[in-house]
Design a binder for these strands. Structure first.
Lengths: 134, 134
DNA sequence: TGCGATTTGAGAATCATTCTCAATTACGAT
DNA sequence: ATCGTAATTGAGAATGATTCTCAAATCGCA
């Protein structure tokens, strides 16, 4: 039998459970500091660095996905509830997109590449801003 | 006849021409500091802040598009040469995608939203990393 | 229960990006 | 060609998100 090199296993801590629960119960994708702020409401404190480490681990494991809506911070949501976003270039407001056009596209990929996910943001101008700009 | 409020007009400076030329002549999307570094090779120096301001102006005008491949920095490319990217989660390597699946998707948009563009990154594992990981 | 590897917390460090402000420059009008 | 004025620039400071450091606390298998 072969001996495997000791692989770093991910551990379950109450901090990681709390981070995951915050993401699960959120209405939409959250930034790291938003997650951190929500967790301060609990009785036990969690460090911001721990939140970042938990997010990194969850993303690596494929449980959580990250999105960039355009302000400078990364937001996180459950991969199982994947959705893309529509972002207004004027006011910065964003909202989930109902349909996801990407999975259908499997053409044009180099052979041997195994797709696990994607990140899509659609840009434009929302009705409100177009109205205000007339 | 109506009088329009004085709108800030964008001016053409040799700095902005240089930034745009750097993007035009690049083989793929560039980060701000990569553009800045390339421009240092010329005889006249350009400040990094100026590069950022030029990029901001070009993006606002729709001449340049930005992408986020996942390391912490934003990259820029000509909007007229739009393409999405394929990113390896293991090694971080990225390459342009041939086909763009997004324009076809017009369903699920809220009425009144005018789409001007999008940003898409497809994630997964490249052939080389899958090979090395066996 | 005991031990070793992983995780945590707090703050320092890093890194990309934005801001400040005085000096310079573009460009429509004269 | 020259003016006047608002836009732009450069250098460095400031900001803000994210990552790193390291000793102490924990997790989970033996």
């Amino acid at each position: 039998m072969t001996t495997r090199p000791p692989v770093a296993r991910s551990r379950t801590t109450w901090q990681r459970r709390a981070v995951l629960r915050a993401i699960e119960t959120a209405p939409c994708h959250l930034a790291a500091d938003e997650i951190h702020r929500r967790l301060q409401r609990g009785r036990r404190r969690i460090g911001l660095a721990t939140v970042y480490r938990a997010l990194e681990a969850f993303v690596r494991e494929g449980v959580v996905e990250s999105v960039h809506i355009g302000d400078g911070r990364v937001r996180y949501g459950l991969a199982a509830r994947h959705h893309d976003h529509l972002v207004c270039l004027t006011c910065g407001a964003w909202e989930p997109l109902e349909e996801c056009p990407v999975p259908a596209a499997s053409g044009g990929l180099p052979s041997g590449f195994a797709v696990t996910g994607h990140r899509l943001e659609v840009f434009g101008y929302c009705a409100r801003c177009r109205e205000a700009d007339r």
